[in-house]
Design a protein around this nucleic acid. Structure first.
Lengths: 220, 220
DNA sequence: CGGCATCCGGGAAGATACTG
DNA sequence: CAGTATCTTCCCGGATGCCG
């Protein structure tokens, strides 16, 4: 009859009732960069089964975090989007991710979704490191396109048109993550075909330095 | 054989493998203000069963978030404490709690542990509102004592000796929360015996205004 | 009494197949 | 493509009992 509740007035406990179920926070992560369809969510969440995704979306909708929208004809597709309040969970996702990046057991070689790769840049961006860097870079990962704007210590990245950017990066988001976080040289990634770079190549090289990973926590 | 994993390089996903299990984040919340014994954890987490708490503590220990310490004789008791990295999860707990406080479905009348009440002050403190307020207040909730120090827009609260504080508040942490967040008048709480206030009463009254709750998110 | 181990029932998550 | 239906597995919660 009654769901599993924490029976606790603490806000943190209430958050767990809202988004504490398995996969829930990752569904939110996938939607932070804009609305998605059911199948797009599945490709961003390898391992989730359809029935669980259905259930999470229902619960998130009941809780006022997600809305289901019907696109106007002729598209007529259903998409899931975050409510304004749901969108505010971006801060939460970033803080949680930044904390866990210090985990000694974190394995960065696992698969990485497109949304994760883009959100990781938002998370790890260092205004300090980006002083003096300005310009725009367009990213195409799979068939998703994002426009990043660097402006002397400021940084934005969102879905957008990549054509007019100063530089373009196309290919596999994991390869890009390897360059940014793993120090993998761009040359090799281009040679293997994992990435293609066009335009202001020097801008791309400089940008690789503005997303520093936090130091690992050590075993006590 | 293999645990349930997300198989996802994203830091947020890794966090869920570390602290995504039921109760795990609340165990951390209970330890943020200092080490605790097994039974103290249980009283702060009404509803958790002993075996689940045991399991969560083991997993948190394996993950480098919690350490188990043996107190020197004659106490010889075991306590659980956060590692330095585990302590860094405070930011996470606060951001999560602050986000969820905007939930329309949040019910503040539920039980509230001592740690929750103190952490909620750390979470909701507004430096803006506290400009011009200075002084110390000692809290005794149950048999736990905390010293709060206000200093013209700065605020700290931690376990400490309440004797020398400018004011003392003793009694039920839920009553205090009602005064701070629910606007319940102190007079009534004193009359009913839920709280006792000593010392600089005016300081206590002023402090009630420096922990504003965020506005509720509205249904879309 | 504190810190577990063990057993059991219910329910959530996972995998797969199937339907409109 | 966007889910439902079904079956299995395993986690959570509650009770009990052991052992220092």
């Amino acid at each position: 009859m009654k769901k599993r509740v924490y029976d606790d007035a603490c806000g943190t406990a209430h958050a767990l009732e809202l988004i504490g179920d398995r996969w829930a926070l990752l569904v939110i992560r996938e939607l932070l960069l804009g609305p998605k369809r059911f199948s797009d969510l599945r490709t961003g969440l390898p391992g989730i089964s359809a029935n669980v995704l259905t259930q999470r979306l229902e619960e998130l909708e009941e809780n006022g975090i997600v809305v289901r929208r019907e696109l106007p004809p002729p598209a007529s597709a259903k998409v899931y989007a975050l409510t304004p309040w749901g969108l505010e969970a971006e801060e939460l996702v970033k803080v949680v991710g930044k904390w866990a990046a210090r985990s000694p057991s974190h394995d960065p070689s696992l698969p990485l979704s497109v949304s994760s790769a883009v959100m990781s840049m938002r998370t790890m961006f260092s205004a300090q490191r980006a002083k003096g860097i300005s310009g725009t870079i367009g990213f195409r990962f799979g068939r998703e396109e994002f426009l990043a704007r660097f402006d002397n210590g400021k940084f934005e990245i969102a879905r957008g048109d990549i054509a007019k950017a100063d530089a373009q990066v196309e290919g596999d988001q994991q390869a890009w993550a390897g360059a940014v976080y793993g120090g993998v040289p761009l040359k090799g990634l281009e040679k293997s075909g994992a990435l293609k770079i066009a335009g202001d190549r020097r801008l791309v090289e400089r940008v690789l330095t503005v997303f520093p990973l936090p130091a690992k926590a050590e075993a006590p």
